[in-house]
């Protein structure tokens, strides 16, 4: 399937920020299920190219402002062709040993309840176990926009029984790691299905925003990104989405999306990965100057004429 994607993030600063530095992980890479035909990232119309090709399989770019600035338009756009591989992700660049993805982070620490999730799943067959786990999470944690925040841990999400795709992914990852299975967090795009049970993208976007601003003069005065309106772009609206990937010896990395209880199909475009949502944040910023930041994100995905 051919996707035309335009992912726009607009940050406004009032008053203008003195200096802004960005780390961008907005560069999808080829694997067997996805081919990047064309892709371009710009910040305020200035094209940005990847600086680092990490062995974890991602590309990262830096951008910084040279003067005071009150608005950032970050656009990632291009054409990507996907095909269904039953969720299996092969042929990514990078040679990181999978064992690294057993590393537990603050957001993916397993408590008793999470360990119970994986203990309840079938133990004889890893693949079946992970499908069972995905279903469990989908059932136990209701998708509810705005019910959690970017800093909600997997354990807290399970306790509350509500969450967004970030929470589902964190839970999946935490449970996998508790069972000694390497797992990682994926940020990407999803072309919505007619029967998708996910409503609005706003909460997921907020979780992905991950912009941290600070004031040089006043210590760490954080103003979290506020994500609001959807854009008026033509084409069906899409969200930046999040899911998990788990490693199974003999098969490799396999995607699992507990929010939709499916393994990623050709509707999924994989953008970047990390140990958790913080590591897989497509945009991370550092802002100097006392300023209030607000964020608007829109992702438009259109299917090309075949």
């Amino acid at each position: 399937m051919e996707h035309r994607i335009r992912h726009l993030s607009t940050y406004s600063y009032d008053p203008a920020a003195l200096r802004i530095a960005l780390r961008l992980k907005l560069f999808p890479v080829d694997h067997e299920g996805q081919q990047v035909e064309s892709w371009k990232v710009t910040v305020n119309d200035e094209e940005v190219s990847p600086l680092v090709f990490s062995d974890l399989g991602d590309r990262e770019a830096l951008w910084s402002s040279h003067e005071a600035i009150d608005r950032l338009d970050i656009v990632a756009e291009g054409k990507i062709v996907t095909r269904d591989t039953a969720g299996v992700v092969r042929g990514l660049p990078g040679n990181a040993p999978p064992g690294i993805f057993r590393r537990v982070t603050d957001l993916t620490e397993a408590d008793k309840a999470i360990r119970a999730l994986i203990a309840d799943a079938r133990q004889d067959d890893r693949l079946a176990m992970l499908h069972g786990l995905m279903g469990q999470i989908n059932e136990r944690v209701t998708y509810l926009t705005g019910s959690t925040s970017a800093s909600t841990s997997a354990a807290d999400a399970l306790k509350s029984g509500k969450g967004v795709c970030q929470d589902h992914a964190h839970l999946f990852i935490a449970a996998c790691r508790a069972a000694d299975i390497p797992a990682r967090y994926i940020t990407g795009y999803l072309k919505p299905d007619a029967d998708s049970d996910i409503e609005a993208p706003a909460a997921a976007l907020q979780a992905q925003g991950q912009s941290q601003s600070q004031s040089q003069s006043q210590g760490s005065d954080k103003s979290d990104g506020q994500s609001q309106s959807q854009s008026q772009e033509s084409g069906p609206l899409l969200e930046t989405h999040a899911w998990g990937e788990a490693w199974i010896d003999g098969i490799g990395w396999i995607g699992f999306d507990p929010s939709n209880n499916v393994c990623p199909t050709e509707n999924y475009v994989r953008l970047c990965s990390g140990l958790d949502a913080v590591g897989a944040a497509p945009i991370r910023g550092n802002v100097l100057g006392e300023t209030k930041e607000s964020l608007e994100v829109s992702v438009a995905i259109g299917q090309s004429q075949q």
């Binding site: 990490s54 062995d55 974890l56 990078g94 040679n95 990181a96 040993p97 064992g99 690294i100 057993r102 590393r103 537990v104 140990l275 590591g279």
Partner: peptide, 29 residues
């Protein structure tokens, strides 16, 4: 890089990959 000393069974994997002083972002550098 490859983690041969882990594969050889000399140092348990978790002592390295779970160690706070280990930086996953340094892999492959």
């Amino acid at each position: 890089h490859r983690g041969e000393i882990i594969r050889a069974g000399i140092i348990p994997e978790h002592l390295i990959y779970q160690n706070e002083a280990f930086l996953p972002e340094m892999v492959g550098v």
